[in-house]
């Protein structure tokens, strides 16, 4: 009930006004939303590309963090951005989305803005270390993965 009410309010807000580069794609229910984000400056790694984010909310949102991953889409082209903290299956290593880093004052919009800035400040065209292995063998849900947040550079 808590989550429903809060998500309804967020949805109303998202439909009203969004920061530049962020668009609401689909929010048919209050469980799973799709958002598109773009990097607004001309970082050559992400120029002219749009990325699709999938938010999955638990019944305990916003006390519990939503699950946020990038999802690849063929048409329209929505690749997985190249970033040392984003695995090629779309899982994002960002403390804000993990249990400790999450705060209930965050919301869908603030997560999108954070990801935008995470992308725009990146200069390395690379995947995280051990990406192949992780993508191949990971069966856990993103929120159950214990990422080590060692890199404060990006």
């Amino acid at each position: 009930m808590f989550a429903t009410k809060r998500l309804q309010k967020e949805l109303i807000k998202l439909n009203e006004k969004l920061p530049p580069g962020i668009t609401l794609v689909k929010a048919d229910d209050l469980k799973e939303w799709l958002m598109d984000i773009q990097v607004m400056d001309d970082n050559p790694i992400y120029k002219d590309e749009t990325y699709r984010l999938k938010f999955t909310f638990s019944g305990n949102y916003p006390i519990e963090a939503p699950e946020v991953v990038f999802t690849p889409v063929q048409t329209p082209s929505r690749p997985i951005p190249l970033h040392p903290h984003i695995y090629s299956n779309g899982i994002i290593c960002l403390d804000m989305l993990a249990r400790e880093g999450w705060s209930p004052v965050h919301n869908v919009e603030s997560v999108c803005v954070s990801l935008q800035s995470m992308l725009t400040s990146n200069t390395k065209r690379e995947r995280p270390e051990g990406d192949d292995k992780f993508v191949k063998y990971n069966t856990r849900r993103p929120k159950d993965i214990n990422f080590v947040f060692h890199d404060n550079g990006v």
Binding site: R6, K9, E10, P62, P104
Partner: peptide, 10 residues
């Protein structure tokens, strides 16, 4: 908006 709780947005 100053009277709105950031957690429940009410």
């Amino acid at each position: 908006s100053n009277l709105v709780c950031l957690i429940c947005h009410s």
